[in-house]
Structure formats: structure tokens, C-alpha cells
Design a binder for these strands. Sequence first.
DNA 1: TTTTGGTTAGTGATTATTAACTAACTTAGT
DNA 2: ACTAAGTTAGTTAATAATCACTAACCAAAA
Lengths: 191, 191
Amino acid sequence: MTQRQNEIINAAIQLIAEKGIQGLTIKNLSKAIKVTEPAIYRHFESKTSILVAILENFKNFTATISSEILSRDESALDKIFMIYRAYYNKFTETPSLVSVIFSDEIFKNDKNLSKKIASLLSANEEMFCSIIKEGQKAKEIRNDIDNKQIALIIMGAMRLLVKKWETSAYAFDLKKEGKKLFNAIKAIIQK
Amino acid sequence: MTQRQNEIINAAIQLIAEKGIQGLTIKNLSKAIKVTEPAIYRHFESKTSILVAILENFKNFTATISSEILSRDESALDKIFMIYRAYYNKFTETPSLVSVIFSDEIFKNDKNLSKKIASLLSANEEMFCSIIKEGQKAKEIRNDIDNKQIALIIMGAMRLLVKKWETSAYAFDLKKEGKKLFNAIKAIIQK
DNA sequence: TTTTGGTTAGTGATTATTAACTAACTTAGT
DNA sequence: ACTAAGTTAGTTAATAATCACTAACCAAAA
């Protein structure tokens, strides 16, 4: 990834966040980084490959944090909190990323892309499920509810909080509200 | 709403579900209902007004069920379940609606539209919050967690379940899984 | 001297939308 | 009952604008 490629990717994310996928045109993109339209093609072979790069970028992020957190010797609830925090930090750093990652709409046009985002979501789900299962075995998390249901609740709440943060135009402190939410979830699921 | 207008709206929802907002073109739409492109304009003055009609349609649905359910003399948990069920029924009836309603991406291009969908979400949130508050007063729902956090958890889980149902190409029984989820949430939030 | 990263000018395809026209049906006046 | 006028819902043909993308050229850096 060259500097210019990163610049293009960031501008693309920004554009999607502002105007939706229909706002991501080569014209808008080139205007944003102050070059002419054909200059974009010196750095990406097509518009789709820009979207692929964005997705690949985020995939790297999730792979890194999940492998790092899973390997640690912490309690299940602590692991969940660490994942929460990692996401909130990332989104606080790059708010416009939310619009891209939490919207499969964007990738619906291209089958290749929609598969990619679906696998991202399911990988995340599996991670949460396995952490919860462990927590249940260790009698840290309540056992009367299926781990899949708990994972659904945890992921769903986080996603909605982030989505609300986005629609509020990032008006509140995501990290702070995220911590509040985690405490509520902790109270609810721990044994 | 004439019959033709309804036909157009349904075709539009279908198209969005299949190919995303970028698949919703007047050409595709006219092909779907087997008329020429200009014929569409005999029934809607613009493409945007079709989206407005879809949103208005769903707004009517939510307004109807919420006024109906809120007026009943039921426990808070029962009310929540009835809301859940009403949504699941609606989505089971018109699966493609999910892609439209749960995707603000689609309406991001137009400020008027994005405001509409945001107000839909916040109206829903307020409804859940007030029901939960009542349930807390009646000592039916646990009091140690803020009603806003509980609303976030309830709505978030439902949204994610529906979203998963969509990405699975409606592969499982939404009503059945919805009931399972409700039972889990019930166990978690009741006093 | 070759490579890198830009430019100008243009491609064909597609976009939403409009103009002009028409057949079929409805309504009102005689 | 019959005709005239108007409405409805479609058509063909065309509009300007925009889309992603390309060819050919150029200057500066390696």
C-alpha cells in the first residue's frame, strides 16, 4: 500500500460515509484528493478494487485484534470487553469507517464483495460464540441461555450503539457509552 | 395508492433487496412491471418519491402496531413480545422489506429521506424505552440497569437477528428463532 | 533512459427525465 | 342513445448529464 493508495482509500471511506455508495464516484474521489479522474487508475485498476482494498484493510484489523485477544489468558468477560474497546477505538479514530463496515448494502452489487463482508461477520460471530462457550464452562457466564443467543445479544447491542453514534453524527463519546453498555451486558450475562 | 403504484413499490423493494440501491433504476423497475420507462412517471413524479412512498408505507405500519399494542392492558414483557412478533410477521410476509428498512445507506443520498429513516428509528427507541420504564415501575423488569441500555440490547438483538436472516437468504424460520431470542431476553431482563 | 504519476481529450454505456403522440375508457351534453 | 370532450395510461424518441474507463501525451525523478 503506497501513500497515495491509502489517501484514495480514506477519501473513498469518507465519501461513502457522507453520501452513501452512490456518492462514491471516480469524479468525486479525484476531486477529493485533488487530481484528475484518470490519475486514480494509476493506483487502482478499477473502482471495485478500491472497495476490495477497504474490506481487506478492515479484515486485517479484525484478524489482528482477534488473534491477539484470543491468545491472552484473560477471563471471557474481559476478552469481550477488550474486543469492544478495540472496535470503539478504531471507529473513534476513523468514524466514517462505520458507514462502510456496517453496511452490506454497499457491497450488494458485487457478489465477490458481498461474500467477503458476510464472511467477516460470521468470523466475528464465531469468535464471540467460542469466547462465551469458554466463559460458560468456567462458570463465569450464565449457563441457562444458549451461547448463540448471548452472542446475538452482545453483537447486536454493540452494532446498534455504533449505528446510533453514526446517525447522531458522532455526537456522543462512543468509548464512554460503549463502556456503559458493556457494564449493562456484564451484569446481565455473568453468573 | 393505486394498484399500479403498489405494484411499483413492491417491485422497487424487490430490486433493492436483490441488487442494492444501485440496482434500483427506472429501467430495471419498468422491466420488472413490464412497461416502458416513461410509464413509471405516470404514477410517480420522480424516483425519490418512490422511495418516499416505501418509507411512508412502513411508517404507517409501525404507527399502527405501536398505537395498538401500547393501548392494550398487558405486561411490559408481553408488549415487547407482541412488537417483536408483529415485526417478524411483517418481514416474513415481505422479506425483501428488510433490506430497505434496515439500511439507512439507501437513503443517504437524500437529506429528506435520511431524516425520515432516522426519525423512524428514534420513534421506535422511545416506544421501547417507555415500555421498559413501565415494566421497571411494575417490578416486572430488573431495575439495576438503565432502561436505555435495556432498549439498546432488545432492539439491537432483534435487528441483528433479522439482518442475519436476510444474509442467510431467509434460510431459517424467523418467527421461530425470534421466539427463541425473546425467551433469552426475557430470562435476562425480568426481575 | 526508463519509470512513475500526472495531464487532456474522448470513449460508449447508462442515468433520470421529458416531449409528443395515441388508444381506450369515462363523463357530460344533447 | 349518441356524440363530443376529457382523462388515463401507455408508447416511441430524444434529452442532457453522468458513469467508469482508456488512449495518447508529458514532465520530472530515479
